[in-house]
Nucleic acid binder design. Structure first.
Length: 509
RNA sequence: GGCCCGUUCGUCUAGGGGUUAGGACGCCACUCUUUCAAGGUGGAGACACGGGUUCGAUUCCCGUACGGGCUACCA
């Protein structure tokens, strides 16, 4: 087959959501796997829905996910411009061509007239059965049409859908799909503002940009019949791309496709990056503490899987394995728990230093800038215990600042002021240690506990509580080694006072 | 309403005319660890329904039900 060229063609009407990202991802994986070209094309033909900043958002989101277009706005390429608004007159030319060849016609019906038709018949369709009752170049005399255009009367160009044709095509994920032409309406190709609709622009650009595979969401399946007709009308059937319609990503409850509102309603991210509205901010996966590679992995598996039992993959591994034939047909629900699991898996895959880079901004948010090796060591210690990048701070702040929060319930339950001499003695013992690393500390604690006839449970929980404020966390030895002797002794001493305070506060209240 | 697409554990899915229907998330238990995770082991848990075809259907066909998408001068 010829050189593979695919495109992701979002329209800049708002933030790219996770379903769009997945479509981009599948296109990207498919292109990379085949050594093909991945193109970004901005479909900004509806100026009423245009949102400034959306294009930039899309580009940044793709880039965050590691998806870099080979051609597109800002990147260039031999088939530009890659913004449809900049290709406007091209479409007019092609619409003209269709009129000349009899595959399209001018229509002068006003929006009000059409609305009236729909009011009396909700199922009204502007199609081959009614077009001869409408005001268009099929019913009006040629001179009249010319005059209306001359007078600057608004008009649209509509596709003249043939009667009695079977439109069949092979979809890479669904197999044979067919439509009867009677069921298709005479879609508007060129709007009265001179801009093309999706249908025209899409087909013209895919042809001009030599797109070989159209991989897009299932919501486009119903209009593919029109697209096939367009390729026929232009005489481009031999160049018609292969279609692959992806299953939709559904709301967690399965009722409909995932939408912007679901994020706010359920407290889950539905956008890759944060997006600011006029009135609210939508946090993205990035702001929730997700690694882009985890999001990519999660998304890749929503509607596809390699058929192996391995689930955790990098982007590179994914494109080696990807295959359209393994894309599933049914819609997939968005499962936030699974997303978090992927994130945890990818966090564990990274070593301390790699993690430190990702975690640093999260720590810096709290005004702390630890040095690299220390941060890396903390990350290494914490990485199997966190699921989100934000957890490094929420679960490990005590590595960077004094303990601010003590688990008071645990202290009340376990601490007895009579124990104080034991811990004080232990502090003295520790202060005599001359070597300070995890192994030495472990041995020392062992020896101490044994010598004094104590149980670990009489010492360790209090050490942990004094050092971290919580009973949870990495091994005490590692924690102590990292924190350093001075800090450990100090926190232990302070902890004793805090414990007494907390316990006596309960006693009096 | 019409047209199109779909339907394997709660969720994501593997599989495919004869299987103990496999894995992962989540859940439960045990284990490891004197913490919490991670890890390990085990458990509960699915072929929507009805007809065919067939020696045999979860798998193929047809219906039905249910779900979803589309039905704009939006993409």
């Amino acid at each position: 087959m010829a050189h593979i060229r695919v495109r992701f063609a979002p329209s800049p009407t708002g933030p790219l959501h996770i379903g769009g990202l997945r479509t981009a991802l599948y296109n990207y994986l498919f292109a990379r796997q085949a050594g093909g070209t991945f193109i970004l094309r901005i479909e900004d033909t509806d100026q009423s829905r245009y949102i400034s900043g959306a294009e930039q958002y899309i580009i940044e989101s793709l880039s965050w996910a590691g998806i870099e277009p080979d051609e597109g706005p800002g990147v260039g390429g031999d088939y530009g411009p890659y913004r449809q608004s900049e290709r406007k007159n091209l479409y007019q030319k092609y619409a003209e061509q269709l009129i000349v060849s009899g595959h399209a016609y001018y229509a002068f019906d006003t929006p009000e007239e059409l609305a009236a038709r729909r009011a009396q018949n909700p199922a009204f369709k502007y199609d081959s059965s009614v077009r001869l009752q409408m005001r268009n170049s099929l019913t009006l005399a040629a001179e009249e049409v010319a005059q209306l255009i001359e007078l600057g009367k608004p008009y649209v160009v509509r596709l003249k859908v043939p009667r009695n044709e079977l439109i069949a095509f092979r979809d890479r994920v669904r197999g044979e799909v067919q439509f009867h032409s009677e069921e298709l309406d005479d879609k508007v190709l060129l709007k009265s503002d001179g801009m093309p609709t999706y249908h025209l622009a899409n087909v013209v650009d895919d042809y001009l940009m030599k797109i070989t595979h159209v991989i897009r969401g299932e919501e486009w399946l119903p209009s593919t019949g029109h697209h096939v007709l367009l390729y026929r009308a232009f005489g481009w059937t031999p160049q018609m791309p292969e279609f692959a319609h992806l299953p939709l990503i559904l709301k967690p409850n399965g009722k409909g496709k995932l939408s912007k509102r679901d994020g706010q309603k359920l407290g889950i991210p539905v956008f890759p990056l944060a997006w600011k509205d006029a009135k609210e901010i939508f946090e993205g996966f990035r702001e929730f503490g997700f690694l882009p590679e985890a999001v990519v992995n999660f998304l890749a598996f929503l509607g596809w899987n390699p058929g192996t039992e391995q689930e955790v993959y990098t982007l590179e591994e994914l494109y080696q394995l990807f295959s359209l034939d393994k894309v599933s047909k049914g819609g997939a629900r968005f499962d936030f728990d699974k997303a978090k699991w992927f994130n945890q898996q990818h966090i564990m895959r990274l070593d301390g230093y790699a993690l430190a880079q990702r975690v640093r901004p999260w720590i810096a948010q709290h005004g702390v800038t630890p040095d690299e090796s220390y941060l890396a060591a903390v990350c290494e210690l914490l990485k199997s215990r966190v699921t989100l990048l934000s957890d490094f701070w929420t679960q490990g702040a005590y590595f960077f600042t004094p303990v601010t929060q003590y688990d008071e319930a645990a202290i009340r339950k376990r601490w007895k002021p009579e124990r104080r001499p034991i811990i004080e003695d232990f502090i003295r013992y520790l202060s005599q240690l001359t070597t300070w690393d995890a192994a030495t500390i472990e041995q020392a604690i062992h020896a101490y506990v044994q010598a004094k006839g104590l149980k670990f449970g009489e010492v360790l929980p209090f050490v942990r509580l004094a050092l971290a404020g919580t009973l949870k966390g990495p091994g005490v030895n590692e924690m102590m080694a990292l924190l350093g002797k001075e800090t450990v002794l100090q926190r232990l001493q302070e902890g004793l006072d805090r414990f007494d305070q907390i316990v006596s506060a309960t006693a009096t209240s």
